[in-house]
Design a protein around this nucleic acid. Structure first.
Length: 680
DNA sequence: ACTTTATGCGTTTTT
DNA sequence: CGCATAAAGT
């Protein structure tokens, strides 16, 4: 048996080896939260608990994976038998197994945001008299999602939105929301929220299934508890109700997902909800230099404290964190470059350096500078691998082979063809009897007759790829072969026709990566396709640590990670805190987000703030330094004023959009060669 | 009637 | 760039 007292500090050890009963672990940033969970899991297994009766709920697949990997090193392969995953993936597993009890087909497909938008657009079009006057589909989805996650009635949430948004009529909105649900169940698909909602419904309504699940899990471990929403907290409570061995780990200071329904109250009220709940506080920070922690503490100085915390630095002061005041985005990017080079000169590797920003678009200047300087970087872009249009195209083809009745995939696939749009695709789907006949080559070819004549030659190629794909399945070939055939028969040609070659190459590379990933994946092809929507870019791009690259990431995506050197750009008013969040009265969450950013740093922390901000039209306007910087005690930081590198430009005051020839098109052209990071 | 192309507009954070 | 809408092309 491992001696946990040698591996952990007394508080961590107490948490890892705690006895039965509810336990709340308040783990401040950098106090070894992951370590504690890993050893808790190991301890339970070593103690003889059947791993399949332990469940570990996390927020990202990466966290789940990392914890299992580390537990495996302590107790060996048995660790793999524990249930572990995100709330969404665990719910999906439950539903595949028991969902039929509430009318959910085990082969349901999980749709992403993009599919959601398409569906809601379709529903709005056919249910609303004047679709132009209806709320935008993004807002509609947001309202529906809010209702789901807060466990409220859609109509009531819509009413709440009515006061601030035009175009919402109570009855009409409810009608749309219902039609959206109906359409989803017709198609046999679930969106992200549905996974939680349906799982909750299953546990709530089907007593025998609830009993099976609640009885099975002797131990329930929940990570990042401060970011659970109402639904997730209830699901957890139900699962843990059987044996009352729930361990929730989190930090109320790091709650940064309230916009997605996270309820900080879940962690604050946890001891009230669970009678005789023990509380353990992890306060010794091993991650950051004391100087960095001083800044972190000052950020949260005035935050309302529910749980008293004394974050104790375990390391010496180190370098004072630095603030750089620079002229504008371009100068800021140059300064970032300088900081990277400085760090490298001090012996840090690229992988030791991260640039963390509030929003994806704030990465553009830096990405451009880093890429011209030929510094290798890894950008966790806003759009995940499985959300990319070309990846989804290929997956649609794959899915049709296994599920010939998959309407969404069919519609997607045929719309790639020339001359076929939404209407034509739907017509063809109806004519072939809502199912693709794969087994006979002739009936497969017949589908072409229902399509626009222009599309027929290409369809013939696709039909052949289908036949070959079927053969691959029969002969149990690596699934990647199917993709390569599809590429060969149709898609590669389509890529070249549709896009200019440079981007086409990138997309081709993505698809080949998909092919090799799908080939060496241990799970079945069916499982792979069903869960594709739940996997993030980090899961496929195995995040190879042998690659020495700097990291560019949003702060949200950087949660739970750490780097020796952290650089935070765009600490300007309106950028961070984000103007929108502040307008909507969510400054406290922006502050927590800043706290998360600061506490990612181990050795060096640099914060940058520009004096001018460029407008999309090309002009510039002055911006104040972020209030987060202004509030910071001056003795904790070193402040550097960096003069403009292009001072011959009169930058005082406003310059109009005509200035510098930056009209809209030339602005866009300037960035055309760089991968942009916007979400779709 | 349906599809493709042109034009103008706008960006928080994500399972 | 992406998305929505308008206009032109089949």
């Amino acid at each position: 048996m491992t001696d946990y007292s040698k591996l952990l500090n007394p508080e961590q050890c107490a948490a890892a080896t705690a006895g039965d009963g509810p336990l709340l672990v308040l783990a401040a940033a950098g106090t070894g939260k992951t370590r504690t969970l890993v050893y808790r899991l190991s301890y339970l297994i070593e103690k003889g608990v059947d791993p399949s009766r332990i469940i570990l709920l996390t927020f990202t697949n990466r966290a789940a994976q990392e914890m299992l990997d580390r537990a495996r090193k302590v107790v060996g392969e048995v660790a793999n038998l524990a249930w572990s995953g995100t709330f969404h993936s665990i719910c999906a597993r439950f539903l595949r197994k028991w969902g039929s009890a509430i009318g959910i087909k085990p082969s349901f497909k999980i749709i992403d945001e993009d599919d959601q938008k398409k569906l809601i657009a379709e529903v709005i079009k056919s249910n609303v008299a004047k679709p132009g006057d209806f709320v935008k589909k993004e807002i509609a989805l947001k309202i529906i999602s809010e209702a789901a996650n807060d466990m409220l009635d859609v109509g009531r949430v819509a009413d709440r939105w009515m006061t601030k948004t035009a175009g919402i009529d109570h009855d009409e909105f409810v009608k749309v929301a219902n039609a959206y649900s109906v359409r989803k169940s017709e198609l046999g698909v679930l969106d992200f929220d549905d996974l939680l909602v349906a799982c909750h419904k299953l546990l709530k309504e089907k007593e025998h299934i609830r009993k099976i699940i609640a009885d099975n899990f002797l131990y329930v471990l929940v990570d990042e508890y401060q970011d659970t929403n109402a639904l997730q907290a209830e699901i957890t409570d139900i699962i843990a109700a059987g044996h009352r061995n729930i361990m929730a780990v989190g930090d109320d200071f790091q709650c940064i997902y309230t916009w997605r329904g996270a309820r900080i109250e879940n962690i604050l009220d946890f001891p009230d909800r669970w009678e005789k709940c023990a509380i353990i506080k992890l306060e010794r920070n091993y991650r950051s230099r004391a100087g960095i922690l001083d800044v972190a503490n000052s950020v949260m100085r005035d935050a309302p404290v529910r749980f008293e915390k004394h974050l104790k630095a375990m390391l010496s002061a180190g370098d004072k964190p630095r603030i750089y005041r620079v002229q504008d985005g371009k100068d800021q990017a140059q300064q970032v470059l300088k900081l990277i080079n400085e760090a490298r000169a001090c012996g840090y590797a690229n992988r030791d350096i991260a640039i963390l920003y509030r929003s994806h678009f704030q990465s553009i200047d830096v990405e451009k500078a880093v890429s011209t300087a030929k510094i290798p970087y890894r950008l966790t872009s806003g759009i995940g691998f499985f959300e990319k249009q070309h990846v989804k195209d290929v997956l649609a083809f794959m899915r049709l082979i296994i599920h010939p009745d998959d309407e969404l995939s069919f519609l997607r696939l045929v719309q790639l063809l020339n001359g076929v749009g939404e209407a034509g695709a739907k017509k063809a789907w109806a004519k072939i009897g809502r199912r693709l006949e794969l087994n006979s080559q002739s009936s497969l070819l017949e589908v072409g007759d229902f399509l626009n004549a222009k599309a027929r030659p290409a369809w013939k190629n696709i039909a052949e790829a289908f036949s070959r794909g079927l053969k691959h399945i029969e002969e149990d070939d690596p699934a990647g072969q199917i993709i390569l055939d599809f590429l060969d028969a149709f898609y590669e040609q389509y890529l070249h026709l549709e896009w200019e070659s440079e981007e086409a190459q990138d997309r081709l590379a993505d698809i080949k990566e998909l092919a090799s990933d799908i080939s060496d994946e241990t799970m079945s092809l069916d499982d792979y396709l069903e869960n594709a929507a739940l996997m993030t870019n980090l899961d496929i791009r195995k995040n190879d640590p042998s690659l020495d690259r700097i990291t560019l990431s949003t702060i949200h995506q950087a949660k739970g990670m750490e780097w020796p050197c952290v650089i935070i750009p765009w600490l300007s008013e309106g950028m961070f805190p984000s103007a929108k969040a502040e307008d909507e009265g969510r400054l406290d969450e922006e502050r927590r987000l800043f706290y998360v950013a600061v506490t990612r740093a181990k050795e060096r922390l640099s914060m940058l703030s520009a004096r001018m901000r460029r407008m999309p039209e090309g002009g510039e306007f002055p911006v104040e330094a972020s209030k987060f910087l202004k509030e910071m005690p001056k003795n904790l930081v070193n402040i550097f004023q960096i003069a403009s590198s292009r001072s011959f430009y009169p930058n005082s005051g406003f310059s109009r959009s005509s200035h510098g020839g930056y009209n809209n098109s030339s602005y866009n052209k300037g960035y055309g060669n760089f991968k942009t990071t916007w979400r779709r």
